[in-house]
Design a protein around this nucleic acid. Structure first.
Lengths: 217, 217
DNA sequence: ACCTGAACACCGTTCAAGT
DNA sequence: ACCTGAACACCGTTCAAGT
């Protein structure tokens, strides 16, 4: 159903990546890329190591030469998602005022928007598979990076007198959790909302305001 | 590996429920109960319809006479989790002052504590399987009940002058999301914390305070 | 070193047969 | 009406064999 068939006919169907001379680095990245593309059309539940391999044009066993198991392969796919997210934050930052409130709001809005616009990615990134992500060193470093980004902004706000001093960790977590929680509730389908970007932005802005008000000095 | 074997020997091994005369209602509930028990010892990833059926002492096909598919069975298991949660909230309410702040804090703390103390349940309840829960009428009614409980408290706070009037929905979601988000981040292993109940309670209290402060009048 | 087909032990779901 | 074994089309993982 996916691809496969047709061994050496020149018509490679939906194979991903360069057509020939796949060295091993190539295969690893072709697998990841195939996973990323498959994720766009297939729900996380339906995706499988075998389908990714088929899309990549290699035997499914080949995956085990580059990844320890299915989780490792899927984590690598999720990692691409985190890269995309960090990039989108950088882009959003360009468009925003560089003061504390601008950056604080930009981070929350980017976080939320990315999850809404990349639901499949979000599902693979945020433990949809029961992955305890602290078991994966890369993912946990990515979590720390997210944490540190926000932590830095909070600290900036404290230094500039916008936020009350002290309890920086608590304030960081509270801010992160609020946005994360809203995104997760939407993602799980527990909340409905008009799919209107303007309205969503306003909503996130309101909520961000609550958090900011609750922590200001 | 699980149970099964031994047809009519009187030694029913690990079968769940009453030993004989299973009518169909019985089988349905035996399956759910078996799922609940299995959840205590098996990760959500490893659990399967077949294992639940084996634990219940019926053929795995029997499940299809009572549930449309695997999701329906698992949703029924998740529902038990929600019942347990609502009960624990009632119990917590007894121990708490009935004023606004007491109820507001009790709800958040119960929500968080339940998830921490019932991680397997939480995983099956909160979309661990990629279940878009709005597709399941019972689950979505449970979501609405959670929402309404909090909504009522917020409204009470507004009427008593603790919270600013207006934007009740936004305030409800912000409060819910913050606690939910923290619990999810812990559940996914993205945050570490000493497994110290007192410390956790203090942390939740601090965060609840931020939310409260941000929305107060 | 890397890839492969075959095999293994599992899945969820369907079907035809039993009572 | 309800339960069953057999069968089907899938899984993830391992193994022995190929280059």
């Amino acid at each position: 159903m996916v691809a496969k068939k047709q061994k050496g006919k020149g018509k490679k169907v939906t194979r991903v990546g360069r057509p020939n001379k796949l060295n091993s680095v190539n295969v690893r990245e072709t697998l990841i890329q195939a996973g990323v593309e498959l994720l766009e059309t297939t729900s996380l539940e339906e995706i499988s190591l075998r389908k990714v391999a088929a899309k990549a044009g290699v035997s499914h066993v080949a995956s085990y030469h580059h990844f320890e198991n299915k989780h490792a392969l899927f984590s690598a796919i999720a990692e691409i998602g985190f890269q995309k997210y960090f990039e989108s934050y950088q882009i959003e930052l360009q468009k925003t005022e560089q003061d504390f409130k601008g950056r604080y709001r930009a981070l929350g809005w980017t976080y939320f928007q990315f999850i809404m616009n990349n639901r499949q990615f979000a599902r693979i990134m945020f433990g949809g598979m029961g992955v305890e992500s602290n078991l994966n060193p890369t993912l946990s470093s990515v979590s720390r990076r997210t944490y540190r980004q926000l932590h830095e902004i909070i600290r900036m706000g404290q230094n500039l007198g916008y936020l009350e001093k002290g309890q920086t960790r608590e304030k960081t977590l509270a801010s992160w959790a609020m946005i994360h929680g809203i995104a997760m509730l939407f993602l799980e389908g527990r909340l409905q909302m008009k799919n209107d970007t303007k309205e969503m932005e306003k909503f996130i802005q309101t909520v961000t305001e609550y958090a900011y008000n609750g922590m200001k000095s």
